[in-house]
Design a protein around this nucleic acid. Structure first.
Lengths: 276, 276
DNA sequence: ACCAAAATAGAATAAATATTCCAAAACTGA
DNA sequence: TCAGTTTTGGAATATTTATTCTATTTTGGT
């Protein structure tokens, strides 16, 4: 009995989530051409709303009729019905987000609203770029290292300091033993680093000396070190067991921090729940 | 000479930006039906990519042919050409952002990647929502107040602390006299508040007592107070001369801060340049 | 109020797009 | 290898959608 048989008929997915579920459900036992469709659609779901059968078929490198059969296997009556689902759900960002942004910028270069628009845009780009560039393996590894630690030491100075603070706050809320090395009073708490602890060090170019030093020191004492930095070639990478990189878009001299905070919080919350 | 006259022919907009410019350029001297088209299109630009002529015409409450003429006045050969612009421009820089986000989420609820996806999404929503909700008047007023101040005092505790820190950092870099009230050592620097200074206070629900108290105190001493908070009805609003609100999307118990930081930085940089 | 010019609505047509169908090819299990 | 079954490609067709055209209405100037 083939896939196009009426007995296989199922109800068409009513939401994008149901669609994805159905897709993963069927993708494994599909003949060659239909499998190609599934793979291509899975990777380009967002283009369904704005493409024709011919476009997608060409992209998947199958004849249009194969794509039609694929739509039917998913439970739709045809391509149009499937497309309707995605056209309904289609919302490019906020309804008039880009209009608004343009209006803000029109306030004139250097005006507060124009600046705000720039910072918003920088933040958004950073976040989107983080989504596409994150290394899942390193992320998992970082979480594992920090979850296994007795006490988590956090260091991040100058512009990385807000991130370090927030991490300390989040860990505190989740009852994870953590210590913020904040350099207040030029006190240096390196002797608080004990075997079995781990260090989460944050710094971006130009890298702050104190952070690099503490990381080396921790490494020397046998602690695991997780780095949160801007590139893999950061000097911090040398003394780290796991290097999380965050592509942050600067505007003017200032860093947006949106992506860095998102990454930091994801790590913190994951560690918090892993320790429960 | 009518609008459909060939002599009015202009080149079709090649980008969404150009499209908007052209739209604002022509919108004011357009006859009734075409004006309706323009208004509707301006308010629903984002749906062009996924609609038919008939859909849009119905939305604008005009016959399809009116919409066709409208497209031509804008410089396109017809609706299809206009639609092509928007279909192409859809998700330009990051074609697989949303796909990627879904994949991250598929790592399983509670997995580090799923958490990251949530935080990224929360941050992005916050930023977009900030763009559409900011009150330009209040923003300008806040910048003006802070620019006129001798010294800018900054307070923000607990989860607002990272923002306060970053503000202090940015002001320092721009040689703006600023003082961070950080509560270290339970020292209370309220006597540093001098006539002619201003206070920038940051707090979100549940509002921190110390911040509210300092704001009242500052108000009592005749200082101007700028509030950065989550809603107009915040208790901080009572003692503030200008209230900047930031719609932050929370994920779980934690606040994204992206929008708050964007707002804070815009204010800081605007103040910095106004003081030059 | 009248005329010329512009704008409009809707029917007619053209083009693009989706869908079906079936003969041929590729499998599958004996 | 062969018969039965599934899968495939592409041509034929149906449907939707875009575009043009023209008779009619509206507008603006005198």
């Amino acid at each position: 009995m083939g896939f196009s048989d009426v007995n296989d008929a199922v109800q068409a997915p009513a939401t994008v989530e149901e669609f994805r579920d159905r897709l993963t459900e069927v993708i494994d036992d599909l003949p060659r051409r239909l499998r190609q469709c599934a793979d291509y659609i899975a990777a380009n779901t967002d283009r369904i709303a704005v493409s024709t059968v011919a476009d997608l078929a060409a992209g998947a490198d199958v004849p249009p009729s194969a794509l039609m059969r694929f739509c039917q296997i998913l439970g739709f009556s045809g391509f149009s019905e499937m497309q309707r689902l995605f056209r309904g759900a289609y919302a490019p960002g906020w309804p008039d987000y880009s209009t608004r942004l343009k209006n803000l910028k029109d306030g004139g270069a250097g005006s507060p609203t124009a600046l705000l628009a720039e910072f918003i845009e920088a933040g958004r780009l950073s976040l989107e770029s983080l989504a596409t560039s994150v290394d899942e393996g390193v992320l998992a590894q970082s979480v594992q290292i920090l979850s296994a630690a007795e006490t988590i030491h956090i260091i991040g100075l100058r512009r990385a300091f807000p991130v370090a603070c927030y991490l300390a706050y989040v860990f505190e809320k989740m009852d994870v033993p953590a210590m913020l090395h904040d350099g207040v009073g030029k006190l240096d708490h390196r002797f608080a680093l004990r075997p079995g602890d781990a260090l989460l060090a944050i710094t971006f170019a130009p890298y702050s000396e104190e952070t690099l030093t503490l990381a080396q020191d921790a490494r020397g004492r046998g602690l695991s070190v997780v780095a949160l930095t801007d590139r893999l070639t950061s000097p911090l990478a040398k003394s780290a067991d796991a290097v999380l990189t965050v592509p942050e878009v600067d505007f003017g001299a200032f860093r947006s921090l949106s992506a860095t905070l998102a990454m930091a919080m994801a790590v913190a919350v994951a560690v918090g729940s892993a320790r429960d």
